[in-house]
């Protein structure tokens, strides 16, 4: 009998420990993220997507703006997954590289700005909650996450230019490096 009760209370303990963690998050993380989401969604609604598209067109020419400035802004303004749509202003050759940089910006900025990728928040939050438990300020970690991301995601985009060139060469495909100024329909006709 003794063993059975021990087992039962041990079993329930799993859920009580989990529940304590859960309600801790509900009262700390959820309200902050929610209010931040409200403000960010409002700002984005006021600024509008058209302005972002103008920036995107201007950014596609230069390697620094293409893989650093634009993906950073796109993540902030449009979040995951809509930020990828700005890649349509890139020449075909650079689209994979923009994708590579963009996907990472949707994570590395997520510590400071959780509205970017709330669906995958726990990549950041899973680790940050441990730091929080020690009573340390997670913003220190979030800032460094963002800054290291800024540099390394840019390099990631750049390296993808090289791997794209390599894959093109080995498979005998050529992709245009020029901005297609024509509309979408013209592009699909070419394909």
């Amino acid at each position: 009998m003794h063993y059975i009760t021990d087992f039962a209370s041990g079993f329930m303990n799993l859920f009580q420990t989990g529940a304590k963690t859960f309600i801790g998050w509900m009262s700390s993380i959820v309200p902050v993220v929610l209010l931040l989401l409200v403000l960010m969604n409002t700002i984005i609604a006021f600024l509008g997507e058209e302005r972002m598209e103008k920036i995107a067109k201007a950014s596609s020419r230069n390697v620094l703006t293409r893989y650093m400035l634009l993906p950073f802004l796109a993540a902030f303004m449009l979040g995951n997954p809509m930020s990828f749509t700005l890649g349509r202003f890139m020449p075909e050759f650079y689209k994979p590289s923009y994708y590579a940089a963009m996907a990472q910006f949707n994570h590395t900025s997520n510590g400071v700005f959780p509205h970017i990728n709330p669906g995958e928040l726990f990549i950041w939050m899973g680790i940050a909650q441990g730091v929080q438990k020690l009573g340390l300020n997670t913003m220190d970690l979030a800032m460094r996450y963002l800054l290291v991301g800024l540099v390394m995601n840019f390099i990631g985009g750049w390296v993808t230019d090289l791997t794209t060139a390599f894959v093109c060469k080995s498979s005998g495909v050529t992709l245009s490096k020029k901005v297609a100024l024509s509309s979408k329909s013209a592009e699909t006709e070419q394909a």
Binding site: P81, G87, R88, E92, K95, A103, V173, K184, E187, A191
Partner: peptide, 13 residues
């Protein structure tokens, strides 16, 4: 993601 970027079939490949 490349679909969202309206990439060509060749670009996806």
């Amino acid at each position: 993601g490349l679909g969202l970027e309206e990439a060509d079939a060749k670009t996806v490949e």
